[in-house]
Amino acid sequence: MIALKVCILAALSLSLALAAPPADNNESFDDIGPTESPNAPHCHKLTKSNKYMDTGFWKKFFKHWIPFTSSARVKMQFYLFKRDFPDCGRELFPGDDATLERSGFDARHPTRIIIHGWMSQGKGSLNRDVKSAYLSLTKPKEQLNQDSNEVNVVELPHYEDFNIIVCDWSKISSNVNYFGVADMVEHLGTLLAEFVNHLHMRANLQYDDVYLIGHSLGAQIAGSAGKQIRPYRFNTIYALDPAGPKFREQSDEYRIDASDARYVESIQTSTGLGFEQPVGHATFYPNFGRDQKKCYMYGCSHKRAHDYFAETINSTRGFWGIRCERMSKHNWILLDNDGEFRMGGEPSNPKNGTFYVKTYDKPPYAMGPRERLTEPPAMEPERTTEVYH
Results as ranks from 00 to 15, higher is better:
F162T: 05
D168Q: 15
Q277W: 00
E142D: 08
Y159M: 06
E155D: 08
P369R: 09
H64T: 05
T47E: 14
L191Y: 09
D97T: 06
P242E: 10
G244L: 10
A19D: 05
P231V: 03
W58A: 12
L144S: 13
T271R: 07
E155R: 04
K59P: 11
R102V: 01
F162E: 04
E276R: 00
D161A: 06
N235E: 06
V185N: 14
D260T: 05
A310L: 13
D168K: 08
E155M: 07
R326M: 06
V357H: 04
F105G: 02
P21V: 13
C88F: 14
Q220H: 04
Y211C: 03
S170Q: 06
G117C: 00
G180N: 10
N152H: 12
C43H: 09
D84M: 13
P86T: 07
V196L: 01
R83W: 13
S15V: 07
D252S: 13
R128F: 08
F93N: 12
F78L: 12
A182R: 08
R90D: 15
S37W: 01
K63Y: 07
P110V: 02
G104E: 02
D208T: 04
K82I: 08
D252H: 07
M184P: 14
F288V: 01
G289K: 03
D257S: 12
M343Q: 09
H158D: 08
R83P: 13
A17S: 15
S13R: 15
L9C: 09
F247Q: 13
V176K: 09
A10C: 13
H42E: 12
Q121S: 02
L373W: 04
K51W: 14
D106F: 00
A133F: 04
I322M: 06
F93A: 12
K60A: 10
I256G: 07
K294F: 09
K131P: 04
F93S: 11
V166Q: 09
Q146M: 11
Q250D: 07
T316G: 11
P369L: 05
P22H: 06
F68Q: 15
S120E: 03
L188K: 15
F309P: 10
R342F: 03
V74I: 10
D291P: 02
L12G: 11
I113F: 00
A219M: 14
S37Q: 03
A203G: 02
A98L: 05
L137F: 12
H198W: 00
V196W: 00
Y79I: 15
P377A: 03
I114F: 00
E325W: 04
L188D: 10
N50V: 10
